[in-house]
Design a protein around this nucleic acid. Structure first.
Length: 168
DNA sequence: GCCAACGTTGGC
DNA sequence: GCCAACGTTGGC
């Protein structure tokens, strides 16, 4: 018996390009990277409870001179423990986490293609994106849901309407 | 470097 | 459970 089907959902995932840029992801084996370092419960819960293999991902560069959407990707695995939480040398070490009781999870993200940089100002100026979660005041979540119509508007109006989000 | 905004921690 | 203090995020 397989998991129940559901329509694909869409997400925006922030990455600091100094740590993992869209180019880094595309250069990885299988263009796939483990999304390490999520240390926020709400974002973790999205990965654990709502994200499914095949969901579309807007690959967003943050904490850099030109923040914005830099590529398209897809969710490529379910969750597992993020090994960085157990590594005292890691920036993402969490002394309260143990292999028996991991706190933090990751999943694999597969880059599909690099896009032109769709800058934050451009996203903010688009009427169809007025309610986009990542653009809301004070938002700091590194993973946010994207509505289907927002995804469609970005692909159509910002990325030239080429098909994306499918690996075949 | 600044600062707004939010999440987490921990004393009570 | 409250809430002040502190830490982090992330754009600018």
């Amino acid at each position: 018996m397989t998991l129940p089907e559901r329509p694909a959902r869409y997400w925006l995932m922030k990455s600091e390009p100094d740590e993992c840029s869209i180019d880094d992801a595309l250069a990885a084996p299988g263009a796939t990277v483990p999304w390490t370092g999520v240390r926020n419960y709400q974002a973790r819960n999205f990965m654990r409870d709502e994200m499914r293999i095949g969901d579309g991902v807007l690959f967003y560069h943050s904490g850099c001179p030109e923040p914005g959407i830099a590529g398209i990707a897809r969710v490529a695995s379910g969750v597992r423990a993020d090994p960085a939480q157990f590594d005292p040398a890691s920036h993402y070490y969490d002394p309260k986490a143990t292999p028996d009781k991991p706190r933090w999870l990751l999943l694999d993200v597969q880059a599909i293609r690099k896009t032109r940089l769709v800058r934050l100002a451009e996203l903010r100026a688009h009427p169809a994106l007025a309610e986009m979660r990542v653009l809301q005041r004070g938002n700091r979540l590194s993973i946010t849901p994207v509505q289907e119509q927002e995804w469609a508007a970005i692909l159509r109006d910002c990325l030239g309407g080429k098909a994306a989000g499918q690996s075949n």
